[in-house]
Design a protein around this nucleic acid. Structure first.
Lengths: 242, 242
DNA sequence: CATACTTAGTTGTACAGTCCAACTTACTTA
DNA sequence: TAAGTAAGTTGGACTGTACAACTAAGTATG
């Protein structure tokens, strides 16, 4: 209990002048670009006393007790600052705190993950997209951001098995094969076409628009997300790979 | 990014002397007692300057940067202090942070939830079990602990639909109807017997012991958890109620 | 202008697992 | 011995996926 811990730490009731951990918020921002799942990273500054100078890191930083009403607002602010995106899918991922993760002292970060549509964003100069998977990215990140990123990918993959989360990675209008492709990119395995269609269409989450996508072959029906953008939860996962 | 936010807050590079939020850890501890899901709560102290004096609250308190290597260790310490239990199921639930949740200032708590077996615990004097559901508990809790508790219950119910989490609430040996009853208590609805048995037995998570539970009627096979106590994830939820 | 090619979308059969309900089994108690 | 109760099994209806073959609608090619 708070009172007790304070007494433990200090032996002085009614005061709060014991050491406090640093408090930060970091955001794992995903988008689909070039048919791959990509994550937005920034380069750390090189100033004196800066930990991990010039390393890649997740966008984030200290909570500003004057500016940020709460953690979600802080995460949304960081997302907006880096991408210009205002209202995407933003979910809390977890928190990481220890004595060792930041050389400046005991620190705890509150991690969020966001799904945005890459084309709808206007990046700041210091931010760049990096594809997931090929790049041996994990080891290159500052702090424990490699762990956080790995955790975000795992959470995303996991939820994609039984939710409509990929819909938030799509442009305003898309076809069912487009959507299936995004599922397959995130899951890194192919899905069965007819079962996929049955599932998505019976979930009542998208509606056809009066247009077709035309290409070098048979045109495809375009859809858009229905209003009320909460993700849909299915009662089954896609059957796992053999 | 950290360096930037610091500059924002301070305009003074290489220093960390801007205001830091309070950092706490709280633990939602669940157990089955008297055929009900119950949660462990403590009473807040009455000292001067104490917020929410004598209110009920989740066990928890400030991170002790000298004692706690990381957040999970801090949560495990609080769990141990209140219950004597050392190695239960302990999962991070999320974090809650805002300017308003604690009258002493901007604060963020890292919430964990634990599943333990009630009989295996030795409570401290200030801690008591409270049943979930009937008690209009939410409004009585200090801080935003009502929200945190509600969130923990939701997460637990949700996961029980497709995982073996209730196994961690069971004593060392139990019967399949015992386990089914715990699922039903948590989910607050009845499950179908044969489907339940098929699912649990084919999950390869429990093994029979060479004993039967005897009672006033047909004896039941006793089981225990298999080694390697990770929870099992099913590919389907129990079918939701009509 | 027919034919091949490609992708969109449908159909049908097999299969897995739940739901529902009836059934058998094994024990205690009257 | 019969009644009662909970453990555990069985079988048919139903839902949704897997797999595979099919039809549909367009472009490109000769």
């Amino acid at each position: 209990m708070a009172g007790e811990a304070r007494a433990e730490a200090l032996g002085k009731a009614g005061q709060l002048d014991f050491p406090r951990p640093l408090t930060t918020v970091d955001v794992v921002i995903f988008a689909i670009r070039d048919d791959r799942l990509q994550v937005l990273l920034v380069q750390r500054p090189a100033g004196e006393g800066e930990p991990f100078p010039l390393s890649l890191a997740l966008p984030g930083g200290f909570v500003d007790v004057a500016k940020d009403r709460d953690l979600a607002a802080c995460a949304a602010r960081k997302l907006k600052e880096k991408t210009g995106v205002i209202s995407p899918y933003l979910e809390q991922l977890g928190s990481w705190g220890s004595a060792a993760r930041d050389p400046r002292g005991w620190s705890a970060t509150h991690a969020y993950f966001a799904l945005i549509q890459a084309d709808a964003s206007a990046l700041t100069n210091d931010a760049r997209w990096f594809p997931i998977g090929g790049g041996r990215l994990k080891e290159k990140l500052a702090f424990d951001h490699g762990d956080i990123l790995a955790s975000a990918i795992q959470r995303l993959r996991n939820k994609v098995e039984y939710t409509s989360l990929p819909a938030f990675l799509m442009p305003a209008e898309f076809t069912l094969p487009d959507l299936q492709r995004v599922y397959e990119i995130v899951l890194d395995r192919s899905l069965e076409k007819s079962a996929f269609r049955t599932r998505i269409l019976s979930a009542d989450m998208i509606e056809p628009v009066a247009k077709m996508r035309r290409g070098p072959n048979r045109p495809a029906q375009l859809y858009r997300l229905k209003k009320g953008r909460e993700p849909v939860y299915f009662v089954r996962t896609f059957n796992p790979p053999v």
